[in-house]
Design a protein around this nucleic acid. Structure first.
Lengths: 248, 248
DNA sequence: CGGAACATTGACGATAATCAAAGCGAGTGG
DNA sequence: CCACTCGCTTTGATTATCGTCAATGTTCCG
């Protein structure tokens, strides 16, 4: 089985055998966690960041009235609490949306690795940029797109992000979100999600059954969503001073 | 006049005289830019990140149907394109919302500075964390709060962020957003903004006239918005190993 | 003074929320 | 193996928040 975290990094930087081995070393001992488990951030995790090797999870906030808004989907290869202060109080909680394999990477280990292999540092930076791009696109999604467009956009995003990590899936992806989860990602109600899902199905765009999502017409979905993967595309870092270091 | 960028950093790390001087050095030659000017990212700016020293600006995206969604408000002390790949294509554009003083800081200069003064690196990282926290809170805002709550939340956020940079303002802040701008921040229409603004005024919570916002009852606004400044609070970084990711 | 940008108002329409009930499907235990 | 439950999905009826359209006011500025 390939390592999703490694795949992510390899998109953003040229990694040699040594780098690859070192990263795989870090991912040796993943925890296995069931679906719908809450992961709080405490103790040990202050000095490490968890990475999802397989499965889906989500970061969310709960409002006083009980409403939940998911702020990030954590797909295979994604890091969480990556953007937070190491000693910051986490406002957000994490829940697994499917069974997951998760590994905790110590900041100190990552740091040593980056000192040794600058390319990995560049790849991590590139990853952080993508996280931000996704978050900003969600603001746009929820702020300015209607229900159907939001759903189409999410499908396109998930498909694209998963394709970075596992090129095998053509039009069939594992999609464990319940309609309640979808509602909390897209800022809608489950009932409304249900109705718009039916519309997507009737229009022959997707099939969604028992956590398997089949995309019948990606082109049209992208059209509806106004989706352009450019904002997510990992970019190899070519800043000249970096290239110089790599060459040496 | 004090330097807003410096103020930001001083909240997040203990800076000595040398550090302070070095940062002020970087901010020597700000550009003065009028209101409603578009700033595109090209050429020189690929190797630098701009910082707002005074005034308000915004990052936004435009959809195919012409709708605009503002994804970040750039207040005094804020950096922009800070979260992007140095050579990444920027999907988002920037517009000034008031006259601004902006200075471009070279990544290479910042990098040298951080090598010399690690505390500055920590402060920058802390700043990045706050950017992320704001972005996530906007997803929650637009996804799960109604119009009145969103507006209240934005007012609380602006008030708090400005207070970090200039402690002087008690309940009176400079607030240059037009109702159209507000609509594009909050994912609403200008007409609806207008009506809800009136409600806030009638309830005696705020006054907003000629870009001056007076907050009469912060407590109640926070109540309505479910606002708790904890998610924005700058935290002094105490984990030295946390410094990677910054170098660009 | 005149014009442009911005704010306000009213009437009407549409998207999405709410409430409530029924159906389905997978796993559990008797 | 069958009833039973639990989580999830589907449906219908009704409501409300917010959007649209269009006109009128107001403020600011050259």
């Amino acid at each position: 089985m390939s390592n999703a975290f490694l795949m992510r990094l390899m998109h953003a930087a040229e990694l040699g055998e040594d780098e690859i081995q070192a990263i795989e070393e870090l991912c040796r001992q993943p925890r296995e966690i069931g679906a719908k488990k809450y992961l709080s951030r405490d103790g040990d995790e202050m000095h490490s960041f968890p990475v999802v090797l397989s499965g889906w999870a989500a970061r969310y906030q709960i409002l006083r009235n009980g409403a939940r808004q998911i702020t990030r989907l954590l797909l295979p290869g994604d890091a969480f609490y990556f953007d937070c202060s190491p000693n910051g109080i986490a406002i957000e909680e994490v829940i697994t949306l499917s069974p997951c394999k998760i590994v905790n990477i110590l900041h100190s280990d990552m740091r040593r690795l980056i000192d040794r292999f600058p390319a990995i540092g560049e790849a991590m930076r590139s990853y952080g940029c993508m996280e931000n791009a996704v978050l900003a696109s969600w603001v746009v999604n929820v702020g300015r797109r209607d229900a159907l467009e939001r759903m189409a956009h999410l499908v396109c995003e998930a498909h694209y992000r998963l394709s970075l990590v596992d090129a095998n899936q053509n039009n069939q992806i594992y999609f464990p979100l319940t309609q309640d989860d979808l509602a909390d990602v897209l800022g809608l109600t489950p009932v409304h999600i249900n109705r718009k899902l039916q519309q997507l199905r009737q229009d022959g765009l997707i099939t969604l059954r028992s956590k398997q999502l089949t995309i019948h017409d990606l082109r049209t979905l992208q059209q509806i969503a106004g989706f352009d993967s450019a904002y997510l595309a990992p970019r190899v870092q070519t800043a000249p001073e970096r290239l110089w270091v790599i060459a040496a």
